[in-house]
C-alpha cells in the first residue's frame, strides 16, 4: 500500500487553476522529490495532502485512507511558511505541538531531549524561541515535525536558512527516517539536495506533472549523446565526433547519432592518448529542470 495516492486531483482558485488532473503515488521507504518552478502548484498539492485545502475533484489517500482528524497524527508536516510561538520556551513549544499530534506530554519531553541532544540543541531547551537564531529555529521545527514518529513526513524547503553543518545533520536524519521505512516527501528548489536524497521525483509545472519517475531513469532519458574526457596529449581527428566543447577542466565530445561512446574510447586508446577521466555525459537535475520549465514557459 503506497503512503500517498493522489488520483486525478483538480483545484482552482477563482480565476486560476492551481492543480490540473494530477496523479502520483509515494511509497514507504523512499524519499520523494516534489519540484517545480514558483507558482507551479506544489504548495497547493501539499496542502491538499495535508487536508488543509480541499480538492475540487479527485481523491487523495494518505496511508491507505482519506485524511481526517483521527489519522492526522500519522503525518509530520514542515511547511515552507513556518514559525513558532516566540514567547514559549523550546521545550514547551515542542511538547505542546507534539501533544496536538497525540503524544503523551512526558513521553514528548523525553523524546524531545533525545532529539535536541542529537542535533546539538539540548543546552537551548529552556530558552525562549525568540532568543534562537533562524537556523536554530529551523532545527526545532524539524524536531517538531518528526517527534511523534510519523509514517509520512512532508517537508517544504527544509534546508533553507541552515548552515552546511546543520544541513548535513538533518540530511542524515532524513536518510535514517527513510531507512526506518517511512515515506518522506521533499519539496525544494535546491536541485543538488534532490539529486542527493531523492529516489523518485515529480516535477509539476502549471499544475500538471511534467516529470515523474525514478531519478536515474529521468536523467537517462535526458542524457545527450556526448562524452566528457580529461586527457594528456593531442586529440586530433576522431571519427563519429561532430563537435568539441572545451572547458577549463574537461572537453565534451558531441557524438553523431549512430556513434557510441565505446567507439570513441577505442579510438582514443589506440591513438595513445593518456585518459584521466572518461564518462558518458548526463545532465544535472538542475539542467533538466531549467530545460523542462523553460520549454513550458516559452
Amino acid at each position: 500500500m503506497p503512503a500517498v495516492e493522489v488520483s486525478h486531483v483538480f483545484k482552482s482558485y477563482r480565476d486560476k487553476v492551481a492543480v490540473d488532473d494530477l496523479s502520483f503515488f509515494v511509497s514507504r521507504n523512499e524519499v520523494f522529490g516534489l519540484i517545480g518552478p514558483n507558482g507551479a502548484g506544489k504548495t497547493t498539492t501539499i496542502r491538499m495532502m495535508m487536508d488543509i485545502v480541499k480538492p475540487d475533484s479527485g481523491t487523495v489517500k494518505i496511508l491507505g485512507e482519506k485524511l481526517s482528524e483521527a489519522n492526522k497524527h500519522r503525518l509530520g508536516y514542515l511547511p515552507e511558511e513556518r514559525g513558532l510561538y516566540r514567547k514559549l520556551t523550546v521545550m514547551d513549544s515542542i511538547v505542546y505541538l507534539a501533544s496536538l499530534k497525540g503524544m503523551d506530554e512526558r513521553l514528548a519531553e523525553q523524546r524531545a531531549n533525545e532529539l535536541l541532544s542529537e542535533t546539538g540543541m539540548l543546552t537551548h531547551s529552556r530558552k525562549r524561541i525568540e532568543e534562537l537564531s533562524k537556523g536554530m529555529g529551523q532545527i526545532i521545527q524539524f524536531i517538531i515535525t518528526i517527534i511523534h514518529n510519523p509514517e509520512l513526513i512532508v517537508m517544504d524547503e527544509p534546508f533553507s536558512g541552515l548552515d552546511p553543518v546543520n544541513t548535513e545533520i538533518l540530511k542524515k536524519m532524513l536518510i535514517n527516517l527513510r531507512n526506518q521505512g517511512k515515506a518522506v516527501i521533499l519539496s525544494t528548489h535546491q536541485m543538488n539536495q534532490v539529486e542527493e536524497l531523492c529516489d523518485r521525483i515529480l516535477m509539476i509545472d502549471g499544475g500538471h506533472a511534467v516529470l515523474y519517475g525514478r531519478l536515474s531513469e529521468i536523467k537517462a532519458k535526458y542524457r545527450s549523446n556526448s562524452v566528457i574526457i580529461d586527457f594528456n596529449g593531442e586529440l586530433g581527428q576522431i571519427a563519429g565526433v561532430i563537435e568539441k566543447r572545451t572547458t577549463k577542466n574537461y572537453v565534451e565530445l558531441v557524438l553523431e547519432e549512430d556513434a557510441t561512446p565505446r567507439q570513441v574510447l577505442e579510438q582514443l586508446v589506440s591513438a595513445g592518448i593518456v585518459i584521466n577521466r572518461f564518462e558518458v555525459a548526463t545532465p544535472s537535475l538542475n539542467e533538466i529542470f531549467v530545460k523542462v520549465a523553460g520549454k513550458n514557459h516559452e
Partner: peptide, 20 residues
Amino acid sequence: AAEKENRLMEILLSSVSTRQ
C-alpha cells in the same frame, strides 16, 4: 493574528481542524 503572522497556522492545521 500572531499565529498567522508567525506562520504557525499551517503547522497547527496539520494537527487539528480550524473548528478544533
